[in-house]
Structures are given as C-alpha cells and as structure tokens.
Design a protein around this nucleic acid. Structure first.
Lengths: 324, 324
DNA sequence: AAGCACTATGCACAAACGTGCAGAATGGAG
DNA sequence: CTCCATTCTGCACGTTTGTGCATAGTGCTT
C-alpha cells in the first residue's frame, strides 16, 4: 500500500538526512533491504519530501554574482557549466538548476504565471514534485499562430508545472498575437478571458525566458511563424532588442510606442513588474541583448543564467573564471 | 586561500545537488581530485551552504503526528528512533534532528532565546553552521545556583549557538532563582539586566526543553541544587508538573499563584507566548507530564520529540508504530 | 631566508550506494 | 477462485563516495 510506503519514505529521509544514519542502518530499522531504502530515499527526493537548497551568502559569493546583483538589482544565480558544452547541454543544465531553484519558492496558494518557449520547456522537464494546495498555474500569453494553435506545445509546459506542484492549470487559449488590435480589445472584455487576466493580475510568481531579436538561434517568436514580414520590419525600426512573453522592449527597457505590443497577448511590462517574484531564466550568451533590455526594464527579481552569459553581461568577454 | 575554496565549494554544491553530476565529473571541471570535491561538499554541508529540509505534507503525514497536531495545535516533528536505544542515544538522535530542523528557521536579524539544560546542551552539540547577520542569541534564564555560577555550563550552550550562526551572544549572569523576590525586583531595574530583558521581549525564536517533576532522571533544576527542601515541598503542594526555563506551571498550563516563579529569572509564560516561533525539544517519555503542561499552556509552536514520547502523548502506550 | 605550524591535496583502500534483473507480492477483472 | 498485469523486493554487481595517511603547499615568525 502506498500510504505506508510514503510514511516509510518520510522516516527514512529523516534518518538519512537529519540523523546521518547509513542506508544499511535504516534498512534494519525499517525491516527491509538496503536497496529498498535507497529507492525510498530517491522517491522522497522526487516527490519533494526532501528539499535541498543552496544558499550562498550574498556577500561572500563569487565576484561575478555580486557585480550583476549590484548593477541590475536582481537576485542572481549563476549556473556553473563547462565551457565546452554545446548550446543544448548548457540549456539542460541551466534548466535543471532553475527548476530546483524555483521549487522552494513555490508555496501553497501561489498563483504562478508561466511563459512558453524553449527555455521554459526545458525547465518544465526538470521540475521536482512538491505537494501544495490551491496553487494555480496560469499561462502568461497566448501561443497560437497562423499555422498551429500552439496548444500542445505550450500546454505541455503548463501541464508539467501543474503536475509537479499539484496545481490547477489555467491555459490561455488565444493566439500569441492578434491580427488586429481591435480583436484584442474585444476579447479582453470577454468574461472567459477576463478570468485569466484576473488570475494574472494576482500572480505571486512569474517564470519566463527572454527572446532576443539577434540570438544565434532566434526564439520561437521570431522564427516560428508568429510574425510576418512587415511585423519584423516594424520591430527592426523601433529598436526592439527582445521580448518577454511576447511583449517587446528596447535596450533601455522602454516599450512605449511599440505598436506590436497592442496586438500581443502577454502581460504589459508594468503589470509584470507588480509581481512579487519574477524569475527570468536565460541560457546562451547570444541572448545577451534581449536580456539587457529585460533587466533595464526591471522585469526580473531573480535571474538564473549560465556562466558564459553572466560574464558577457558584466563586460569581461570569455576569460577564465574569476576566482575570488 | 580560503576564498577561492569557498567559491569552489559553492560551485561544487550546485553541480552536485542541483545538477546531479558525480563528484568525478565535478573534479574534472574544477581541475582537482575527486577526494577534494568530496571534502568540498562536506564543508558546504557543514557551513550551511547546502540546506536540506524535510517537509512532510501535513495531511499525508503519519497518524501520530496529525493527532498531536490537532490536539495541541503545534507543528510537530516526531523523530523516528529505534525503541531499543537507551536514554542517552535517543537524546542524541532527537538533538541532532532538532538542530537540523532549527537551522532553516534561523535568519538574519533574528533574536534567538535559548534555555539551558541537558536537552539544549545536546542540541547545541549538533548545530550546523549557517551564516547570518546581526543575529543575537540571548539566554532565557539565569543559571547560577548555590554551588556554582552555572556560567560555564550554560555559556557553553550559548557559545555553540552563537558560533553556529555567527551571532552575538548575550548571557544572563544571574542565578536561576533569587532567594528573595525583592532582589529580583531590584535587579530587574538595573540597566544591564534590562538590556537582556529588552532583547528577550523582542525574541523571534525561542528554543527550550521541558522539566518534569516526576521524570526518571529529574532535570537539572530539580536535582542540581537550585532549589532547597522547602522550595520542593511548596512545588509539590501547588500541583506543579514541570517547568520551561525555570518557570513552573500546572498540568492545565496555569501558573498563577506559584510563588516560586516570583523568584525565577525565566520569562513569564505570557511573555514567552508572544514569541513568534517557540520550539520545544523533548526526549524521553518520562517527561510526559511536564510536556502536557507546557502544551496546555500553549508554550510551543513547534514540538520536536521522539517517537515513544509522542505515542505516550496521544495515549496509546507502547504498541507497534502505527503505519498509516 | 629559514624554520615552523598548519592546512590542503592526492592516493589507495574500504565503505556506502544505485540499479538491472528475476522472482514474489499485490490488486483487480472475469 | 484463478488469472493476468502491475508493482514491489532482494540479490548481485559495478559505480560512487568517505577517509587515513604520507606529501606538498601556505603563511607567519624569527
């Protein structure tokens, strides 16, 4: 029966992590085999029963982190990754650490806003379970485009977040961009849409990546058929450097007068800034310009990024890691 | 140099605990030996860089815990210990788990009130370091008696708490009990004493054990020469079941009219109840009566105790552990 | 500059741990 | 009750990790 198993896992976790007993000793106490204890513990970790947190004292942390922290006023987590790793492997490592960093921040009664994109997809694959109550996961921006409804892609991400935290999932079934601003206005008055907007307005946590117009591998948004020729041309002329949840901004963080935003379904930057905890995950140094804009706009309270990007962010190119 | 070592420890901890790499892989990345990584990680754990927490979802927890939780309205942590262990070993295990449970609760700017006694002594020996700022550890009650100033004993406990959290330590250099209530009144007006009282009034965390008059091995208070014959006789006649920080109470939690309290240096129960987080650590089923009184008095918000005592607390004697 | 006390490192070995696999236990469905 | 599908268990093996010891490094004193 699964209930006694859960209870055994709890006992085992306490004895292993809090009392420093060996699995062997625990096995004897629980009258089972050592392998079972090993599996109980691994289950305890997977289900979020055991929470492992790394807290680096802000002031003794590495040079790099404190520079970013000071300059942009965000809580920064630099993910150490071997330089030789390729883009995909780096993303995987960053996503894993991001997932585990987010975990402890999620609490019962939270309303978690989630964007979509390759970064969030990767993060969603690494979430560890954590049992919470009355938590809601709400989609930040629509995912439909001219070719697909985008539903499966975005909803996979949402679903994974939902099941990791035992949360209700609220999708946002609209396209990423409307063709006409008027449609958006109309839709925004629909009660079904307003329910989502209302949830967004009450978010306690938001998680998003950034898009950068000049990234080596452009984000979904710039490549995936969400925007047409003329849209891209307009973007280029308005000095846009990137986006968060399909809302665009310039290098200095401003977004006024960017017409495309009037057709976008993402939350206005001013609204995003209201959210208590805003977690930005970035992997890949080529997103640097988008990231700079997002930070200038004050969109993030927490920034999780790989080491190479962190170094580019503060200026020194690709030198060896500064060690103290 | 210790600074680069700290930074390496942080990197290693992130890679090991957050990215699931093996120590071998980390060693290669850090250009050092695997053994060094093993030691870095162990240092990271010892210095509180890595925080491991066990959170059992309140509603799926073992029967025993939820019964206590409901009945006494405290956050309870039952420490699983083998029944065959003797008193001392049990205390050690409970103390270890208590120390690690307290760790995550301590934060910068906290004012931590600490009682003294064999339980707290044991706990103090198992604390894991955690770097905080402007934290203060303050002694809850005096420790002097007719034979000794009690300074070394109590101050060892205090010192260990202080160094674990990098906190300032504020001793309370008075006897446990004054001979005359008038002396207490006088002393309480001294500015040196008021500084301590003032700190106590602003405590955010208090940690204490309980004394029980009928315990198998009576607490220091009842055995250590703190009270004389007539004191003990008076206690017996006022239905006192136990004490917290040398303040006495009856089984129903009341303490009015217990004259000895007028000479005691511990915080009034009403004052203790003001503290946000009040952690009571108990090991040994013979303290059950003192514990019942303390809980009735609402002295604890968190209770950490061994399994046998927990079972006695809810009534069923020493049966096999209930397993869901 | 030399000496000294202390700490950090790598090696090698032993202890502890994770996991594929085959068999046992469990829980429905007929 | 019997069958089947699924889950759980212990074993055995290979991998990963902790640690005593000898050596190398570091910083402080004279």
């Amino acid at each position: 029966m699964t209930l006694s198993r859960h209870s055994d896992a709890l006992r085992a976790a306490q004895m292993y992590y809090l009392q420093d007993l060996t699995m062997d000793a625990i096995a004897r106490e629980l009258r089972t085999s050592r392998s079972t204890v090993s599996r109980l513990l691994s289950a305890a970790r997977d289900t979020g029963l055991v929470q492992i947190q790394i807290r680096n004292p802000l002031d003794t942390g590495p040079e790099l982190e404190s520079m970013i922290r000071r300059e942009y006023n965000v809580d920064v987590h630099v993910v150490p990754v071997l330089e030789s790793l390729n883009e995909a492997e780096t993303l995987d490592r960053v996503a894993m650490q991001a997932a585990r960093t987010i975990g402890p921040l999620v609490d019962s009664n939270a309303i978690i806003g989630i964007a979509w994109g390759s970064t969030l997809s990767a993060v969603s694959r690494h979430l560890t379970r954590k049992i919470t109550h009355d938590t809601v996961v709400v989609q930040l921006n629509g995912a439909g485009n001219m070719h697909t409804t985008g539903i499966t892609y975005a909803s996979d991400i949402m679903r994974r977040f939902g099941s990791a935290y035992g949360a209700r999932v609220e999708q946002f079934p609209v396209p990423a961009f409307f063709d006409h601003a008027a449609t958006k206005t109309a839709m925004w008055n629909e009660r079904s849409v307003q329910r989502i907007l209302n949830l967004q307005a009450r978010m306690s946590i938001a998680v998003f990546g950034v898009g950068s117009v000049d990234a080596d591998y452009p984000s979904h948004v710039y490549a995936g058929g969400y925007l047409d020729e003329s849209d891209l041309k307009v973007l280029a002329h308005s000095d846009v450097v990137g986006d968060v949840a399909t809302v665009f901004f310039r290098r200095d963080g401003s977004s006024d007068g960017i017409v495309l935003n009037e057709r976008s379904t993402g939350p206005a930057l001013s609204q995003l800034r209201q959210v208590r905890r805003r977690i930005c995950v970035v992997s890949g140094a080529s997103k640097i310009n988008g990231l700079r804009g997002a930070l200038s706009a004050g969109l993030a309270t927490d920034l999780i990024l790989d080491e190479a990007t962190a170094r580019r962010l503060v200026g020194f190119g690709g030198a060896a890691r500064p060690n103290g």
